[in-house]
Simulated assay, not measured.
Amino acid sequence: MLFDALRRDGFAFVTADVMQPLLQSCGDLSDWKAFADSWSMLGPDPYLAATGRLRRRRHATYRATPHGDVQAAPHQPHYQALRYNTLQGDIERWFEPIDAAIASGTSLRTILAFCNTFFSSLAPEVPQWHVEVHQFRIEASIDAAGEPTPEGSHRDGVDFVLVLLIDRHNIASGTTTIHTPGGTPLGDFTLTHPFDAALLHDPRVFHGVTAVTPLVPGEPAHRDVLVVTFRANAAGA
Rank of each mutant, 00 (worst) to 15 (best):
217 P>Q: 03
48 L>K: 13
114 F>G: 02
142 I>N: 11
16 A>D: 01
148 P>R: 08
10 G>Q: 09
54 L>C: 08
127 P>T: 06
6 L>K: 05
109 R>A: 14
234 A>W: 15
211 A>F: 13
180 T>I: 09
127 P>L: 09
193 H>C: 10
203 P>Q: 05
222 H>D: 08
126 V>I: 13
4 D>Y: 15
39 W>H: 01
49 A>R: 10
98 I>H: 02
135 Q>H: 15
131 V>P: 03
188 D>R: 11
65 T>D: 07
234 A>M: 12
137 R>T: 12
207 H>R: 04
221 A>L: 03
27 G>P: 08
208 G>L: 04
67 H>P: 00
71 Q>V: 10
125 E>T: 10
34 A>M: 13
154 H>V: 07
185 P>T: 08
138 I>A: 02
214 P>R: 02
115 C>T: 00
76 Q>H: 00
201 H>N: 13
211 A>P: 02
232 A>G: 12
27 G>D: 08
180 T>L: 13
15 T>K: 13
57 R>A: 05
62 Y>G: 01
224 D>T: 03
131 V>T: 05
61 T>A: 15
12 A>R: 07
34 A>H: 12
125 E>I: 06
173 S>F: 15
32 W>K: 02
50 A>F: 10
167 D>H: 10
38 S>G: 00
50 A>G: 12
106 T>F: 00
41 M>I: 03
121 S>G: 13
157 G>D: 09
9 D>H: 15
127 P>M: 08
123 A>S: 15
23 L>P: 00
33 K>A: 14
81 A>E: 09
15 T>F: 02
165 L>S: 04
55 R>N: 10
19 M>E: 01
21 P>M: 07
234 A>E: 14
52 G>Y: 12
45 D>Y: 06
118 F>D: 00
33 K>F: 04
60 A>G: 12
60 A>D: 06
47 Y>N: 06
195 F>Q: 01
117 T>N: 09
194 P>L: 00
74 P>D: 12
95 F>K: 10
228 V>L: 00
120 S>T: 05
142 I>V: 10
5 A>D: 14
62 Y>D: 02
36 A>V: 06
214 P>T: 08
115 C>Y: 04
169 H>K: 07
226 L>V: 07
212 V>Q: 06
148 P>K: 04
96 E>R: 11
124 P>I: 10
65 T>H: 09
13 F>Y: 13
135 Q>L: 01
35 F>Q: 04
122 L>P: 00
210 T>Q: 07
194 P>C: 01
87 L>C: 09
169 H>A: 03
88 Q>M: 11
38 S>V: 00
171 I>G: 04
18 V>M: 05
117 T>Y: 02
89 G>N: 09
133 V>T: 08
62 Y>H: 04
145 A>Q: 09
230 F>P: 00
140 A>K: 02
145 A>G: 10
30 S>Q: 13
9 D>N: 14
154 H>M: 10
50 A>D: 12
33 K>L: 14
17 D>I: 06
204 R>F: 14
